[in-house]
Design a protein around this nucleic acid. Structure first.
Lengths: 212, 212
DNA sequence: CAACATCCATACCGGTTGGTATCTAACCAC
DNA sequence: GTGGTTAGATACCAACCGGTATGGATGTTG
């Protein structure tokens, strides 16, 4: 591209793709609310004030729009809120426990009702579409690895018992986390989420003390 | 009804609703494969050889068909395979652990790919439809209660520590169980399911020994 | 046999879906 | 200025959706 132009007016590109971003965010919201298959392109556009011309200019199909939501919205959020903090922490096990506590304390009815965006899409799309499966899988595997590394570091810091299988434990933590979301979403109860998550915290704490 | 007729030819009623049952099973399969919203009535009928006339004769709407699947297919299966065995066992905690082991050992690729029928429907429909939510909720709560009672009985048998919150633990077991399904469904890997479920068994075992 | 309910096939409907073809305005480099 | 690219509005489409109305078999009952 023309580097001079970019440097001369860096805000242009931001402005240029402003509508793309609007569509992306509206799609993320609609997909979160209805699932991917039931998400209506007409609804997405109604929330942006744009029309199909704009959408199909940026995204050649609904599927590609959905994948963009996965990569650019869902992954980005997790990266900022979980992966980076855990990867850069001095005592990542503490951060993990704090994060569980934080989510337990700040969960809202609205979030519970809609459920975890990643989990929703995963459950719906993984068996149906290999592209979705691949993109969602990458996020879940990254997540698992981040937690596994946190536990491994915890082992060197005597926070986690040496006999713990950190890979399996990380897998279970991610699974159970999503399970807690799911249960709370069904019951539509913040309290259920809190109870459930505190049991998960017990599991993590047990990785560090007497238990089997 | 006419009791004499029923006694005279008890097979008649079975035959009579044979097509209803066919539709119900085909619907369960289609819903398991595609989810409820994406389940196509045309597809369901194609797998039965029947037509819309038959379906709408037995089920006044797609929603009611879906609820019938929940009540008559999904619930029945759980009742037979889990609730009754746990409720009638002498040492229910043993049965619970055996059941986890059994599912871990006998899980198939096909089942993993499609995921847990109950969990799938729950995630999809609970936020969208209060009727589905109510019916699915009842199953989940029954399940939780069955496990809670098993744990309580385990406490009297010194299999579970006295300080364990059996209600919270039961909630977590159901949640984590569904979470394991979900994770394995995404990865489409029986091995992931096994790893994950063995961690859940560790959690249950920890309710009985030294932990926290 | 006649009257009636049950069972189910057929044809059809309005609404919604994702997607496309066309066109216009704005902007860009030359 | 002028030709070409980009952004996006509008109108339209075939396919599919769940659902309904009708009518014809097939018993079931008086």
């Amino acid at each position: 591209m023309n580097q001079i132009t970019l440097q001369a007016d860096p805000s242009r590109d931001l402005h240029k793709d402003q509508n793309r971003e609007k569509i992306l965010q509206a799609a993320a919201t609609e997909i979160h609310r209805c699932g991917f298959q039931a998400a209506s392109i007409a609804n997405i556009l109604a929330n942006t004030g744009l029309t199909k011309g704009a959408l199909y200019h940026y995204f050649p199909s609904k599927q590609i729009l959905g994948l963009a939501v996965v990569d650019e919205v869902i992954y980005e959020r997790l990266e900022q809120k979980m992966f980076t903090p855990l990867n850069t922490a001095d005592r990542p096990v503490d951060i993990l426990l704090e994060y569980l506590q934080f989510r337990q304390d700040t969960m809202t009815d609205e979030s519970i009702k809609l459920g975890c965006p990643l989990n929703n899409l995963t459950q719906e799309m993984s068996p149906l579409d290999d592209n979705f499966k691949a993109h969602l899988n990458q996020i879940l595997q990254t997540w698992q690895t981040v937690i596994e590394n946190a536990l491994l570091k915890g082992q060197t810091q005597q926070q986690i018992r040496a006999d713990v299988d950190c890979s399996a434990a990380a897998l279970f933590i991610v699974s159970a986390w999503e399970g807690c979301w799911g249960m709370a979403k069904n019951r539509q109860s913040v309290e259920v989420f809190q109870t459930c998550l505190s049991q998960l915290r017990n599991y993590v704490l047990n990785l560090g003390s007497g238990g089997k």
